[in-house]
Nucleic acid binder design. Structure first.
Lengths: 189, 189
DNA sequence: GGCATCATGTAACATGTTACATGATTTT
DNA sequence: AAAATCATGTAACATGTTACATGATGCC
């Protein structure tokens, strides 16, 4: 019923009216790490939600730049409540770095270590961002949002620890332990 | 250069020739939890890879059902090596359950607990599957693939522990600690 | 004979990304 | 005056999902 982008938008508007630009900023700061959205989705989606009567846009030219502020309607709140009540909740993870590692049988130990290290630094950067967030705006978010942030922080911490452990395991083994096509040989090609 | 589906296919064919059906089965069993693919992507992608000379299909009607087996070509191996060498590796996480939790300010404590519990059981089921996998086919996978499986196992374990901890935190607080629209009141927009 | 599994696809739809395009206002 | 930020979009492309469609073979 509600598209992915649709529900994030409605969820954010629950608190206060915002422009498309504001919405994007809020998502990036808070839910972006597990539910990203881009301008080219947000603006069309706002139009669609307005056509369905779930949000209402008003022109706000009060001194500032002119912008369209969208507010959630009663129907919008009802739709949001319905979406919240629905127990379905799919989740996905997609990690290209892990896939490269997975298929890295033909790489040298050093190349593998480099892959793992790249994964680690990427996650470390994201972790730093979330930690800064957690420190700097505890009053802006409610308790649930803080707990969600905790999810992200521990998730990145976990990934980083996997990287470290994996690197240690790799480093402890001689190069020869990773032959090219160890498996392919067995039953005939 | 290589599409997502393209690189999983090429990676799998590195070990042995397979039909589209086989490929799907292998992905589901191993890399599926962090890199899913469906038939409707695999078959067209195989055609595309063949047109580019990266794989080669041969009709195999040896007694069994007729099927097209695809083998990776030399050009395919080169392409795979290029992809592996490329340091870029984006990753994404998308979790609708977490988003519902995030926006759950208007839910009762019991409803929130139900959400968290649903997340937990979903992950527990996936964890059970991976654990079974880890027990049952250690000889089928190389060491890298086993480490990748470890990634999945600890990832699910982590999510489950977050759920438990969050449930405990919620349970310890009185209902009144979660008012509707606690934030919206403050500074008026 | 019936069910599960093997086997291969198409069509319609939904989702989402990147690059392009523009311009006003505020801050430095 | 220049740079950053606010502000809103479009177009082309890529990716991917779900439902539909079909049929052979192997196993009980």
């Amino acid at each position: 019923m509600l598209s992915n982008t649709g529900c994030v938008i409605l969820g954010l508007l629950q608190k206060q009216p915002m422009s498309g630009y504001d919405i994007k900023g809020h998502i990036d700061l808070t839910a972006g790490f597990f539910f990203p959205a881009s301008y080219s989705q947000i603006y069309p989606e706002l139009k669609k939600l307005e056509a369905e009567g779930l949000v209402e846009g008003t022109q706000a030219d009060t001194g500032r730049r002119s912008r369209t502020e969208y507010a959630i309607t009663r129907a919008g709140r009802a739709m949001l409540a319905e979406w919240l009540a629905d127990p379905s909740a799919d989740s996905e993870l997609r990690d290209e770095g892990l896939l490269k590692f997975f298929f890295g049988g033909s790489l040298t130990r050093e190349e593998l270590l480099a892959k793992v290290d790249a994964m680690k630094s990427m996650r470390a950067a994201e972790l730093a961002r979330l930690n800064e967030l957690a420190d700097n705006l505890p009053e802006l978010a409610d308790e649930l949002q803080q707990m969600t942030l905790e999810f992200g922080i521990s998730f990145y911490e976990y990934v980083i620890s996997w990287c470290e452990q994996t690197a240690a395991t790799l480093a402890a083994r001689p190069e020869a332990d990773f032959p090219v096509d160890k498996i392919a040989s067995g039953s005939g090609e």
